[in-house]
């Protein structure tokens, strides 16, 4: 089958006249299918933001290539680059620096306006995007009066209005409080489920990555591991080496296993741990 996004042995080296070149990405091979729900997790400086900027051609690989539905992001045709950026929407960490207009609905319209969509269709898309993210009632609100979490939802709505196949989010929750984080995560789950949009979510919060169907761990410019979360998060040695947290439930299960208790494999969530303990207790 055709992949939505394909990294083929992509490397990226930052060159500057002041310092030695830094290789931020080393031999990245990554494939994203339609409708996937993927988290990329890694410590600061692991290259995850550099990776993010390759998804829509903001950066192009020094060697190797990145294909969006078979088209290279290094394409020099501006129309193709536009098509790539429409298909792969991007949301950044700081909502204040990516919202263009001061009014919610007018910001959401910015993308489709750039695409030359007819006015009536823009209105329809904007309303749909606002409703899908549950912020329709704020449509005339000034952006400076919204909470950080709501601002981030506006940014996602702005991408959604371009009808993308995939949304890439570069640490979108780093500046949010727990409530804002939950809002963003729940909205993404809904978009993935109901609209079939692929989501690539970059974070260093383990507690967020456990919600995804596939997790890739990045460290020192490489993808160290890639698979379903219950597989990834039980590789404690790998996570520790990258300086990442291990989910508390997994940690507890591991400790109990070490003490000789036969815990169920692949425990990630609180419920799984509690259920496993219930079974254990009933056997004793």
């Amino acid at each position: 089958m055709e992949y939505l996004i394909e990294f083929k042995e992509a490397t990226y080296t930052y060159k500057s006249s002041f310092v030695d070149p830094v290789q931020a990405l080393k031999q990245i091979d990554l494939r994203v299918k339609r409708g996937e729900f993927l988290a990329i997790i890694g410590p600061n400086g692991s290259g995850k933001s550099t990776l993010a900027r390759h998804f829509n051609g903001l950066l192009t690989p020094t060697t190797g290539e990145v294909l969006i539905r078979g088209i290279s992001t290094a394409s020099s045709d501006p129309e193709q680059l536009k098509a790539i950026r429409r298909q792969v929407g991007m949301v950044f960490q700081n909502p204040d620096n990516q919202l263009i207009s001061s009014i919610v609905e007018e910001d959401v319209a910015f993308g489709p306006e750039n695409l030359g969509v007819p006015p009536k269709e823009i209105r329809r898309r904007v309303n749909h995007a606002l409703a899908a993210l549950n912020i329709f009632k704020y449509r005339r609100e000034s952006i400076s009066h919204l909470s950080e979490g709501q601002k981030q939802l506006v940014a996602i709505a702005g991408v959604l209005a371009m009808k993308p196949d995939c949304i890439v989010l570069d640490e979108p929750t780093a500046l949010l409080d727990p409530f804002g984080r939950r809002q963003v995560l729940e909205s993404l789950k809904k978009l993935n489920r109901e609209e079939g949009i692929a989501v690539v979510f970059i974070t260093h919060f383990m507690s967020e990555a456990v919600h995804f169907k596939r997790v890739a761990v990045m460290d020192q410019g490489e993808i160290k591991s890639d698979g379903p979360p219950d597989d990834i998060f039980t590789r404690t040695a790998l996570l520790k080496a990258a300086g990442l947290d291990i989910p508390v439930s997994a940690q507890l299960a591991e400790e109990l296993k070490g003490k000789g208790f036969p815990m169920a494999p692949g425990i990630l969530h609180v419920e799984e741990l509690v259920n496993s303990l219930c079974q254990l207790k009933s056997k004793i």
Binding site: F179, V248, L252, V270, L277
Partner: peptide
Amino acid sequence: IGLEPPQVIEIMQQL
């Protein structure tokens, strides 16, 4: 108030 208690607390609570 929308705060997440530490996970250990949540585990203990559920137990």
